[in-house]
């Protein structure tokens, strides 16, 4: 449905905004490398089922997300490594990995490798933006491109919420994906303060600065 398609394209847009920023400014300043590595982990653990993905739409997006994320990490770790400031990227990701790992082991739909990794990926994605938001907090401001990147990334999962509501009412056979919905709502909540600042500042053409 339209919400989900808009969400997936918002996700794709966020990746291209980030790529554009890094290549245009020839710098990855203000971008959390830790968050990008977490997203890489999210895609790998979620798309283990890539080989037998039946819908071409999903297949194409999965390939796009994995390949573009790999390229972003290459750019940050190799090409523009000097512009990476690890002293600003100090969030303890082990807490996030522990959080996702614990929930994946406690409440998977089924105790199979695919399902446990899928649940891990869903929970990890819900908190993967924290290092990036934390870095933003520390620097106190961000380039407009970085703010657009985070906004598009946040919008992607926010749009999945009406998608789930729509599917609940329109597809009688649709069973609610409780893990995805719970994590999706948590994820969107984590973006809420950013969205507020983004909406009030950037929409007025101002530079993105925290109050």
């Amino acid at each position: 449905n339209i919400f989900r398609v808009l969400g997936d394209f918002s996700h794709l847009a966020s990746i291209f905004i980030l790529l554009h920023k890094i290549q245009q400014l020839k710098s990855c300043s203000g971008i959390s490398f830790k968050s990008q590595v977490l997203y890489m982990l999210v895609y790998i653990t979620r798309y283990l089922d890539l080989p037998w993905t039946s819908s071409p739409y999903n297949f194409i997006f999965k390939v796009l997300f994995i390949s573009s994320e790999l390229y972003i990490i290459y750019l940050m770790a190799r090409a523009y490594k000097p512009t990476n400031d690890p002293n600003l990227d100090t969030f303890h990701v082990e807490f996030l990995l522990g959080f996702a790992g614990l929930l994946a082991l406690l409440f998977p739909y089924k105790y199979t490798i695919l399902e446990v990794f899928w649940a891990f990926s869903i929970w990890l994605e819900s908190v993967a933006i924290l290092p990036q938001l934390f870095m933003l907090q520390r620097t106190g401001e961000a380039e407009a491109m970085t703010a657009h990147y985070i906004a598009a990334l946040g919008m992607y999962r926010a749009l999945y919420i009406p998608n789930w509501i729509y599917r609940y009412f329109s597809e009688p056979t649709h069973k609610v994906d409780t893990i995805a919905v719970t994590a999706g709502i948590l994820q969107t909540i984590l973006y809420s303060d950013f969205f507020w600042i983004y909406y009030t500042k950037v929409m007025r053409g101002e530079k993105f600065k925290l109050p």
């Binding site: 989900r4 997936d8 996700h11 979620r46 089922d49 037998w52 993905t53 039946s54 819908s55 739409y57 999903n58 997006f61 999965k62 997300f65 695919l114 899928w118 999945y160 998608n163 994906d177 995805a180």
Partner: peptide, 10 residues
Amino acid sequence: KKEEGGHDEL
């Protein structure tokens, strides 16, 4: 975009 068993969303 239905998928058997697996998850049909990205």
